[in-house]
């Protein structure tokens, strides 16, 4: 049987996480190929509904990766993103879906290594959780 490879949707900030993803790809900081990167101009623009819909559509995990606090290009977008992720987690919990499938994190500008680490850790955690129960 083929090993379970969690499908992760990563909403990545254009100013930090996206650059980190590019660099990580060129260097040897590998991150799992099953990650789908979605570029957003700022994580503040990611809505709760985007997070829910990704899981509803069958993603195993959703991560929002923005800038370090205090370094958002739009000042507070990452703070907003973190709060929305928390709210979405509680909405998921009401439905009985593990909060661990949602995550907010940040990388510094050239943070290719951390970017890869976030996704690798999340992949491992999702492997432990198993596939999105909505897919079974």
């Amino acid at each position: 049987m083929k090993e379970f490879e969690p499908r992760i949707i990563a909403f990545c900030c254009h100013y930090c996480a996206l650059a980190a993803a590019d660099v990580a790809g060129k260097m040897e900081f590998q991150f799992p190929p099953s990650v789908r990167v979605i570029r957003v101009l700022c994580t503040g623009k990611v809505e709760i509904l985007h997070l829910l819909k990704a899981l509803e559509a069958g993603a195993d995990g959703v991560v929002v990766i923005g800038c370090k606090f205090g370094e958002c290009y739009f000042r507070e977008g990452n703070y907003r993103a973190q709060k929305k992720v928390e709210r979405a987690k509680s909405l998921l919990e009401e439905v009985g879906i593990e909060q661990g499938r949602l995550r907010f994190d940040f990388v510094p500008g050239p943070g290719a290594k951390k970017f890869a680490a976030i996704l690798s850790t999340m992949t491992e955690e999702l492997k432990a959780l198993g596939p999105n129960p909505l897919r079974s």
């Binding site: 809505e47 709760i48 509904l49 829910l52 819909k53 899981l55 509803e56 909405l91 998921l92 009401e94 439905v95 009985g96 879906i97 129960p133 909505l134």
Partner: peptide, 17 residues
Amino acid sequence: EEEVKILGSQLRMAFRR
């Protein structure tokens, strides 16, 4: 509209489960 869609998403997920 936003809250309608969120509740819809929650209900569909709960039903599918």
